[in-house]
Amino acid sequence: MNLDFSQIVPYIPFILEGIGATLKFVSVSILAGFILGTILAIFKITGFWPLKVFADVYTSIFRGTPLILQLMIIYLAVPQLTGYDISAFLSAVLAFGLNSAAYVSEIIRAGIMAVDKGQTEAAKALGVPYRAMMLNIILPQAFKNILPALMNEFITLTKESALVSTIGYLDLMRRAQIAGADIYRNFEPLFFAGVIYWVMVTILTLAGRYVERRMRQSD
């Protein structure tokens, strides 16, 4: 068997630097997707139809087309239209953030709908304003229920982040490919990158379980 892991040793620091690059844009994308997704979810449940239509069309577009296509449009096609030379990082954050928002908004919408209607009535009967009711009463209960689904979305995003290697962003995946091309061996660097992805996702999973346990204190 033709395996020689010692060959990648000189490339280990180079590949490891990709962890930072990946984490940087994944965390910004998750945050952006989460905030935007929450706003879209609230649009979807308001009685004001233009907001609802906007959020529904948004979700339909971003869920209905491939993420890699959205990434390419932002990175390659937008400069053609606007003349603005967008960076790989900004393209990646935009594509992943906007895409994730569509999925997150559906998860949060379902979570809000699943909160007992009596909670809304109790808050209304006390004279609680809509905003406070959402922030203090409904969303905390919704988030508790949807945490596993949200974690799943964050994990998917972390793994799918490897797609940015296609636009030349020097993430973990791209660096593994470069190392592979340099030493004419692909198994070792790809395997190494795979282990790192797995470790990152495992840490994310454990963090999610911890938060879940904390939130279940009232049970």
Partner: peptide, 17 residues
Amino acid sequence: RKSIGMVFQHFHLFPHM
């Protein structure tokens, strides 16, 4: 509603408080 209190059949306490 501030001046009218209401008590429900199924309580509707806020479960996270």
